[in-house]
Structures are given as structure tokens and as C-alpha cells.
């Protein structure tokens, strides 16, 4: 049985982080024609942020508490 622990709160914090990263106004900072490695900035930003959020979620879930 899953028990509500610190994990749930960490995940909720990640939700808030993700909501900030994926929305106005942070998103608008990357709205430009700039390219990095040839890839449009906003496209790269969203996918990197997305990957980061997923990685953090995995970290929270899979980390063993001692």
C-alpha cells in the first residue's frame, strides 16, 4: 500500500515547477529566433525542461529512503 509521505509533497512541488516552466511568462523568455545546435530555442527549451521534470520525478519516485 502506498502511504502518503514526503514523496507526495515533492511531486506536488515538481508539479508547481513544471507549471511555471511550461507557461507564460517563463516560456516567453525563450520565444526568439535564436538557435542552439541549429535547434530553435523554444523547442529545445521545452524538451529539455520536460526531460528535466521527468528525470526529477523519476528521482523522487525511485530514490530509496534511508
Amino acid at each position: 500500500m502506498i502511504r502518503p509521505t514526503l514523496k507526495g509533497q515533492r511531486l506536488a512541488a515538481l508539479f508547481l515547477l513544471g507549471f511555471l516552466l511550461f507557461n507564460y511568462p517563463l516560456l516567453s523568455l525563450f520565444s526568439s529566433y535564436t538557435r542552439i545546435w541549429g535547434i530553435p530555442l523554444v523547442y529545445l527549451y521545452i524538451f529539455l525542461a520536460w526531460a528535466a521534470v521527468i528525470a526529477l520525478m523519476a528521482l523522487v519516485i525511485e530514490r530509496r529512503e534511508h
Binding site: 502518503p4 511531486l11 506536488a12 515538481l14 508539479f15 513544471g18 507549471f19 511550461f22 520536460w50 521534470v53
Partner: peptide
């Protein structure tokens, strides 16, 4: 992106 965010709340909601 929406479902990704929601997945973070599954711990509370979906559970």
C-alpha cells in the same frame, strides 16, 4: 505537457 504535470499530482489524485 498537461498530463505530465498531472502525473506529478497522481500521487494525491489518482491514488
Amino acid at each position: 505537457l498537461g498530463p505530465t504535470l498531472m502525473a506529478a499530482l497522481w500521487w494525491y489524485v489518482l491514488l
